[in-house]
Design a binder for these strands. Structure first.
Lengths: 121, 121, 121, 121
DNA sequence: GTGGTCTAGACCACA
DNA sequence: GTGGTCTAGACCACA
């Protein structure tokens, strides 16, 4: 289901944000689906409820999910959740590219890197 | 010489790190050149000396400059400074691209973004 | 220094965010000033360090302060901190005005209120 | 009649308070009209009677309705109900404006915003 | 020393 | 039951 790496330098709550984002992108979690409750997921993953809470609150801040006290947490409606995930990645990539340009990277460097990651076609 | 944007949300010391990096890449600052002293640069830019200090420390951490107690701060030798700047940007760009791929961005998205930033040739 | 209301329904960390924002607007905290450390402020206010941490992280998310692990937390440079506070207030005012319109308040009501608060000129 | 958004982060009872307030402002509910009984409205809206009860209690606290044991709940007499609704919005707007003033917003900012929302006349 | 993360609890309002 | 806040600790990397 969700595999956490407790040895990683990446915080557990960040791993959770990414894992849940991936499940949404893969279609395993759909719009309006209810997420496991904070306590239930904490128990299943062997993690403290506060850590799950932190992940859920970050996802809510990014408008990928929404939480209703007393009811539960839910995937944002329509294409909203997926859109928020992609727009975030896109924004981060743009910033990295702009920084790179300022730092002296040229278009060829970007293309080479893209080739490495996506494979040359 | 160095233009800071005091309105920007980007911390001044970060702007300084970038500006000084650019001056190195442009060749305005060369290997073994001495940087202005913390207090002199602070006075010239109308900024707190602590802010300059912070920028210099970050540049030193990245091995772009080195400091000698009692003498001053100097650009790292040879192509070293430029290499450190570019390799750092390149690594950040690679990570952003890998994240983007996981988030569902395709090669065409990367190319479009690169076109925007570098201009289509 | 900072007065908290432990009886209030408003969470302590939110009260802290507001109090610190006010100190910045009043000029008591200036650009690049270092804030008290998480632990020091927790001790002074008789509050758990996690609660201070939560307030500081929210202020950092709003780009009003920036934190550097191992060094401390600092007011954002230049006019940045004040700008971020004002833009947020502006957003809240817009929402209150939209709610008021839905509740039947007319333009004249808004003008009367503005007159009361800013003084008729 | 009344549409609730069960997905919203806004508590159901708050939505009810607002919806009923709107019906009063629109004239759909007039002074001395009897409101549906707690159980009847709960059944119609598919909501727990406690939730309706809570909304009615809040409206009574705000003097928008009044309840008579054994008889039911009624809209407050004369212009009273509408006044209470508007005065509440007005109070919220006043607070947002005072916060805005403390944050450095000037009268011109308020006027510009009012122009946006009400349209310049 | 600093901020950042995390555990293991508690209590609250709300449904 | 649910999410939200908070306490009272712990340990980590970094400077």
């Amino acid at each position: 289901m969700i595999q956490l790496d407790f040895q990683s330098r990446q915080p557990i709550y960040e791993q959770l944000v990414l894992k849940l984002s991936e499940l949404i992108l893969l279609g395993a979690l759909k719009a309006e689906d209810q997420l496991p409750s904070v306590r239930a997921l904490a128990r299943d993953l062997g993690v403290n409820p506060n850590t799950i809470q932190k992940a859920y609150q970050e996802l809510e801040r990014r408008k990928i999910i929404y939480s209703v006290a007393g009811k539960g947490s839910f995937i944002s409606p329509g294409e909203c959740a997926g859109e928020m995930i992609r727009s975030r990645s896109c924004q981060a990539l743009r910033e990295a590219m702009e920084d790179g340009k300022r730092a002296g990277l040229v278009r060829a460097d970007v293309d080479r890197l893209a080739g490495e990651i996506y494979g040359e076609e």
